[in-house]
């Protein structure tokens, strides 16, 4: 089958992401990656929980004193909404509506960039308070966990942007449908991790 073959909405398969052998392999391989990423983040969460509010230095900085909920709430809502907009993008992908898919992906990218901007502002604020990466065991564990998530956001955004630009003139076909689908899966996974970060790090941190 020619991967670059043109399709219409009527000939477009119901599940284009797994319609080819390549798509099927990517799908299985990508979920295996997500399972491995779950373990990666678990080890970072476990480290954070073990070292939360621990020194030896910098004991003036505690989770309860440092974190502020309004900013975290805004970040949570933005990332959650971006998860929905990528669902819309995949809805249009399945309907073979390339322009609508690109538009929703564009909105997803804008929301993601806003999230990343707020996170950079937050980290910058902490560093100005004197809470840097090497201040305490707590600060290292915090920045490693939340920073790794932020790096995933950055990677997800670059992935979306690269796909959108690379395929802007190509339209949807069997070659790129699995790519768009997996990028959207990755984006949902980033939101899954954030659900635990806002609960375990911020909400449980503010409680003390």
């Amino acid at each position: 089958m020619d991967l670059n073959k043109r399709y219409t909405a009527q000939s477009w398969p119901d599940h284009p992401e797994t319609a080819t052998l390549e798509g099927k392999n990517k799908f299985v391989g990508f979920w295996l990656l997500l399972a491995a990423e779950t373990v990666t983040f678990a080890s970072l969460f476990a480290t954070y929980l073990a070292l939360k509010d621990r020194g030896p230095d910098g004991s003036e900085f505690t989770a309860a004193g440092l974190f502020e909920l309004p900013l975290v709430f805004a970040m949570t809502m933005i990332l959650l909404t971006s998860s929905l907009t990528s669902v819309y993008a995949m809805y249009h992908m399945k309907n073979h509506n390339f322009k609508a898919m690109q538009a929703w992906l564009g909105i997803t990218v804008l929301l993601g960039l806003t999230f990343l901007g707020l996170e950079i502002y937050e980290f910058n604020h902490y560093v100005h308070l004197g809470f840097g990466y090497t201040t305490s065991a707590f600060s290292s564990a915090f920045f490693t966990l939340v920073g790794t998530h932020g790096a995933h956001v950055l990677f997800g955004l670059s992935w979306f942007i690269a796909l959108m630009i690379r395929n802007s003139k190509r339209g949807l076909n069997m070659y790129n449908a699995p790519k768009f689908y997996l990028a959207a899966l990755y984006w949902h996974f980033i939101d899954v991790v954030w659900v635990f970060i806002f609960t375990v790090v911020y909400l449980m941190g503010v409680i003390g």
Binding site: W31, L32, L34, A35, T38, F41, A42
Partner: peptide
């Protein structure tokens, strides 16, 4: 199955 194995190890 992959995902649940990952979650189990994570837990």
């Amino acid at each position: 199955f992959f995902m649940f194995s990952g979650m189990f190890v994570a837990f």
